[in-house]
Design a protein around this nucleic acid. Structure first.
Lengths: 256, 256
DNA sequence: CGAATTGTTGAGCACCTTCAAGCTAAGTGG
DNA sequence: CCACTTAGCTTGAAGGTGCTCAACAATTCG
């Protein structure tokens, strides 16, 4: 795990970049791991697994080995219900992790599928466990990532439990926008990798409702919508709406 | 479990029972921690914090120090929205843990309040971190508990995203029943510590709807309902309903 | 280019919410 | 101990939000 032959530079073809060379470097395991420690971590990570649109990363029921970090592209997590329909439980954008919900069990409780061509880092959980035994910061980071996931799910609970359809879509867009921004991408313009169906499932709405909302948001000059390409026009109002759809309308929300 | 100094018996007043003496012993940190290790864990746990009905364990925004395990009684977790109304995010029964969602932040993202007289063990997170650095099994267990929480939240997402009111209440009752059973209590008869309002919030429904459902379930001989005291009469049908309300009705669901 | 999948739009209706009133239970003070 | 107050629960009636069904448009893909 320590001694490294100079295999860092790979001839060509497969873009096998080490974490240090990866744009997502500070993002996957955010901070505080010093360089020596980091090399150990780098050593266990299996880099650049690539999936094409529609391919599965794992399926519900498969045995759990690794957690994953998204490099470029996007992934959806979902559970399939008895009657065949899916409930989308999360979208994973560049720099985000997935697979954490499986740690408790021997097998994955949900499936993960690429929404577009996506590359990921695979982190064998067994070895990550050993490693974080030795590297306190790593343990803390791991717990934080999991805690963050819990937090995210709970904010989703509020969304599904209390919010109207308007508020849900607004909150969804704000969330995506914020996450892109954190990763250094544009917060105003982005492409939604997922289908309207996926969005509807995630937000607990019918597809038709989501579709109607997009056109209405467009008419109200909140957004520019061209299929999957979204541009946020009135960020302030969208934020206000994400919290409370009734108060926003008409008069501008007070400008922060 | 073998050599014990006679410090087990405490003079009197404050019922300061060690974990070994606690009925929830194997439940909080389920398994596999050997005795020596366990004593270390036992050493950092602050036992028997007691709350009366309505008292807060912590409030949203307070700084995070500890996670908690419920001994007897029950706790609700909830976030308060801008407009004052609450979204209940979880109920915590004997043997279950709470506070995990705060690990990522310095402060608690939600509040926790006792639904009845409740005693808890407080586990300072800082020291638990150090300890699990030394005791691999403990680290694994901690991750598992968190992963389980994620899993639970995700099953709730499905509930709120896809299920009808009938299915939601049925699933809720099945969940409570199952959890009591796991802890060695009756799976058929139990008292719901929370108000109808709390249940409604948790399930994303109006209070009136929940109330109506209880009376309907009673009329259909699924349950006996006397205020907060519930007895499950037709467990099979309730289970079937929790998954798919339409298929269940009339004809018996196939018996497992 | 044609087939298939995905997205949009419209109309009607169902489920659940909202509003409103009465009821029960619990806690308080005289 | 009872009257009073208050909060919580139940029940009814009306209305709206979002769903279902259905047809059509647009996009993707072989």
């Amino acid at each position: 795990m320590d001694e490294k032959k100079p295999d860092k530079v790979i001839p060509f073809s497969q873009p096998k970049v080490s974490c240090e060379g990866c744009g997502m470097f500070q993002l996957c395991l955010p901070i505080g791991v010093d360089l020596e420690e980091f090399k150990e971590l780098d050593g266990i990570i299996q880099r650049h697994r690539i999936l094409r649109r529609g391919e599965y990363l794992y399926r519900a029921g498969e045995t759990f080995h690794s957690i994953y970090a998204v490099g470029a592209g996007s992934i959806k997590s979902f559970t399939s219900l008895e009657d065949g329909c899916e409930q989308v439980t999360g979208f994973h954008l560049p720099g985000e992790m997935l697979g954490l919900e499986a740690i408790n069990e021997a097998h994955h409780p949900c499936s993960a599928k690429a929404l577009e061509t996506t590359n990921l880092c695979e982190i064998p959980f067994e070895r990550l466990g050993e490693l974080s035994q030795r590297i306190p910061v790593l343990q803390t980071e791991l717990l934080k990532v999991m805690s963050k996931e819990i937090l995210h799910d709970q904010s989703l609970l509020v969304l599904l439990g209390k919010k109207s359809a308007d508020e849900r879509l607004a909150a969804f867009l704000v969330s995506i926008s914020t996450r892109y921004k954190q990763r250094g991408f544009s917060a105003e313009s982005f492409r939604l990798g997922m289908s309207r169906n996926d969005i509807a499932s995630y937000l607990g709405l019918a597809v038709e409702t989501v579709s109607r909302l997009f056109t209405r948001f467009h008419e109200e000059n909140l957004l520019q919508v061209h299929g999957k390409d979204i541009t946020i026009c009135d960020e302030v109002r969208l934020h206000a709406m994400a919290q409370n759809a009734k108060e926003y309308s008409g008069h501008n929300a007070r400008v922060q």
